[in-house]
Each structure stands twice: as C-alpha cells, then as structure tokens.
Design a protein around this nucleic acid. Structure first.
Lengths: 286, 286
DNA sequence: GTTCCGCATGAATCGATAG
DNA sequence: ACTATCGATTCATGCGGAA
C-alpha cells in the first residue's frame, strides 16, 4: 500500500512551477482556461495571444516531467467570427518546437453537450485531449483500461465469416486477421482513442466541468500507485482529488484563492484511509 | 422532380479541375489519398510533402466552388516515428491563407474500428471532417438532418415542473435561459458535430472505406435537389453514386482507370428512375 | 437495497442594437 | 468601421429524494 498524498499551491503556475525539480512528475493532466473565458481569473487571454501566453508554461512542464512521463492537455478552440480559431493547432506546432512529441490526440465526446442553435453550426459535442511526451518510449499500462465487450463485439466479432477469419493482416494492418480467435472469448477489449463521457455539473462550483472519470482513466493508464500527478490549473481540484483517491500523489496549482481554499477544504474533509484505498483500488482496478 | 445525373472524369484532378467553370459547384465532399498510401496512384505523397501537394488542388477547389457552397475534407494524420504528423494542421493554416474559412471540424466516430494493439497507442476510431467555406454565409438546411429526441423527453415532458414553465431568461453572464415547454411536441432535435457511423469495408475494392451515410448526411445538409456535388478523388465512387441517388448532379474525378471503369459500370447498372428517386427521397427525406 | 422519477445545470454563438 | 452588450435559441445527463 502506498500513502495517499496531495500538495496544493496557491499562486500563478508560471511562477510556482519554477520551484519544482526537473524530471519529477509522472503525469500532467490539465484543462487550462480556454481563450477569453474565466476572464476575471486569468485576465481573459485573447485568442490571438493564447499561444504566446501558454508557451512559457509548457516549457516549464517539459522541464518538470519525467522522461517517461505523459502530458494530457484538454483544450478546444472557440468560434471567432464564424470560424474555428487556429490557436490550438498553432500551439501544437509551437510545442513541438520546444521539444514535445505530439504522440496522440484523443477525442472526448461530451455526451451531454451544451444546448443551443445557430444558423450555421451545430452544438459542439467534443473536445481535444492532446497527448504529449518527451520520448517515444513512455510508461503506459494499456490493460488497466480495458473495457468490457460491448455491442461492437456482439455484432461484428461473433458473426465473423470464414473469409474474415482467414483474412490476412495486410488488409487493415491492425493485426486483426490472424489473431481474431484470441478476441472471440475475451471479456475485455482495449479501448479506442475516443472517450465517451458526460460533463459533471454538480458539487463543483467551477465553470469547467471535468468529470472524475477523465483524469481517472489517464491516471490508470499512465501511472503506478505512488507516482506524481500534476495539474497546474487545478480549478475545483478534480485531478488532484482523483489522484489521491487512487493512491497517487496529487499536485495542484491554482491562482484563485477561492478555488484553492475549496480544494484545501475538500482534501481535509475526505482524508483517505488505507481501507478506503483498498476497497476502491484493489484487484483489477488500479 | 429533378433529373439525376452524374459526370465522371478519368484523369488527374490537378488538370481536370482547371477545365471546370468557376463558382459552379455547390458541395465538395472528398477523402483524398492519405499520405504515403495509394503509392502507385499519386506517387505516394510523403507526409512532409503533403501540404505542398494538396495546396494547388485546394486552390482550384476554391475557384470552382460557389460562394454559398461548402467543402468537406475527410482526413486524418498518420503516425510517423511515434508521433502524429502535423501535415493536416499545417494544411488548415495554409488553406486559410488561400482564402478558405475553417468553419468547423466535425468528428467522424468510427463505431466499428478494427481491434488491434500497439505498445503505445490505442486503435484509432475517429477521423476529421473539416468544413471549409468561402463566406460566412452559406447554404445549410439543418432541419433535414434532425434526429429523434432522447428518451428522457418521454418522461420529462409529461408533467412540466414549476421551474420548467417559469425559467425564461436566467441570470446574465453564466446563466442560460431555456423554456422546456417549447419542447412539448418535439420529436426531433438538432444533431451535434460528432457523427457516429460505422465504416463500410466490403464490396468496394477500395482502400478508403467511406460509408454511404457520410456523403448522404452532408448532401442533405448543404444542397438542394439538382445541385452539383463534386468529389475530386472519386475512388470507388461513393459520393458520386449517393449524390445521383439523391437527385443531385454527382461529379467525380479519378486518376486510376480501374476505379474509373468500376464507377462507370456502377452508374450504368443502377440507372435511377424517377420512381426510385421518389421512393427514396420523397417527403421528409431530401 | 433497488428502481424510478423529478430536476438543475453546463468551456455557446449569432445577430441586432447601442456606444 | 469597430467594439460592447443583450436577447434568443436549445439537450441530455447525473444526482438525490421518493417509492
């Protein structure tokens, strides 16, 4: 058993991060303020200034992350003047110049997206979960996030024809063909890079509704118990609280005292016990 | 009733497009060859050369598209050296310099992506459907793609609560006004920008598995019967065939004779009759 | 303990009007 | 012409209390 800890800092992450030792964090999961939102907190970064504002932060994050660590950045571009703004894709290009590898882009499908109607677009029901790494080799425990077989297997896998079974790998290049028998009797399959999760609205007092399941999924996937999980834009503290509950060391930075106090309070209220940890994260559920 | 037509061209779209009049196409839906694939056809465009290769084509597409028209580009970046390559996001930036507006990015969630396993990534279950326009105002018929309302409405709307009837316009700033009573007799709602569609792999003899439902959805949404729908990388002809079936004029360009002949054959085999058109695209189904 | 059911709420965008 | 404010529009989910 590992001790569950949490460390939270009140201040601007641009300053606080500088006090952290290099190569000390295993996973960063964060959802920075989006352009032009949370105006009172971060001074309302204009979309045109967003990249410039974020780069010094990602530079520090690159420094504090372990070589085998992972950085998950939750972000989505605003509509400006009838167009999707380009600050997110520009940021990807600039972060690569800093040395980040853009390993993958997960999609967070928000099942309960915001309502609304406009003459020229539909409701926005997805956000980017950009995965960055320092090296091509990083820690990843895929089997921990396997999902029970769903409709997909019932329809396709169980009705495979002879030709499907004989089909060689080259057709799809996925290793499907020859090893298909391995899949048939499995209860669990690996997930895809599309995550279906609803936003969580209640008991958070924070505009950015990050569901617990989101950091939980990445913490399971990319860290071991005892590892360090950082959220430089802590907000209501979802990432930090989930990390501690899972027996990791949650580290959070928040600039707004109101949120900081809220998380401080939540951490004291819900002191995890060894019993609780064992119950929640025993066998088969890291 | 409109006559259903189709025009297909054998040749390199870089050349064929130049013979088209400007401002003549209502909708472009295409899935260009991905980087490094279909080597023999377009010479196997290297990811690093992809943008350079595509820009002259998008330039021509901009010319032939009507001001009120829409361009849907289905594309996804390859993994190169353990990283997602940046040619797609670079292409977006460059196309904006040409004058394109990057109006929206739809997500095509491929529900039945094949299983497979790699040491450091999961199965790729989504692709980008980039929407580009020439103007902020373009043709769009949202009501034609409405979907059945969720089950929640059945119970919810039977008896409206006090607040449902009362909450008209709520607080300024963070609040959101609504009027559930408006939905009393509503059976259909507007969709989101996430499209859930299974891939179509069989009976196409073509590597890009584009389901009929995909062009169908955009053709319904962005065109009227009789309008022109172009696919400069026709392949197995999905877009062209669907367009003709829906009473639009399908226009396709294909460089590879094998595919060209295949589509030519398919067009002759399935000559649509007025009866067939009426059956499939009569009331409530444009 | 389980299921059912009521209900508040969430990273929004456009167009018109006003300064 | 360019920016700021305001009204209008719109779903689906997880929670908590009740049965």
């Amino acid at each position: 058993m590992y001790t569950s800890e949490a460390e939270i800092y009140l201040g601007d992450c641009r300053e606080v991060l500088k006090t952290f030792p290099e190569n000390s964090i295993d996973l960063i999961v964060t959802s920075p303020p989006y352009a032009d939102s949370r105006k009172k907190t971060y001074g309302g970064i204009h979309p045109n200034k967003y990249v410039e504002w974020f780069l010094p932060i990602s530079e520090e994050l690159l420094r504090v992350l372990k070589p085998t660590g992972t950085f998950i950045l939750n972000i989505k571009e605003k509509v400006v003047n009838g167009e999707r703004h380009t600050y997110v894709i520009e940021l990807i290009l600039e972060m690569r110049k800093q040395g980040w590898l853009w390993t993958e882009e997960f999609i967070w499908h928000k099942k309960n997206s915001y309502p609304g109607k406009w003459p020229n677009r539909f409701r926005d029901a997805w956000e980017r979960l950009l995965q960055f790494n320092k090296q091509k080799k990083f820690k990843m425990y895929q089997e921990r996030v396997m999902v029970p077989i769903g409709d997909w297997s019932k329809t396709r896998l169980q009705r495979l024809s002879e030709t499907d079974l004989r089909r060689d790998n080259s057709r799809v290049g996925s290793g499907f063909g020859k090893r298909v028998a391995n899949w048939l009797n499995r209860e669990y399959v690996y997930p895809t890079n599309v995550l279906h999760m609803a936003t969580q609205c209640t008991n958070k007092n924070h505009s950015a509704a990050f569901p617990d399941a989101l950091p939980e999924w990445f913490i399971k996937l990319f860290t071991d118990p005892g590892d360090s999980v950082l959220d430089p834009f802590m907000g209501s503290g979802t990432t930090v609280l989930v990390a501690r509950r899972m027996g990791r060391k949650g580290i959070g930075i928040e600039i707004k005292e109101e949120y900081y106090r809220m998380v401080e309070n939540a951490l004291n209220l819900k002191q995890p016990t060894l019993f609780e940890n064992k119950e929640l994260y025993g066998t088969n559920n890291y």
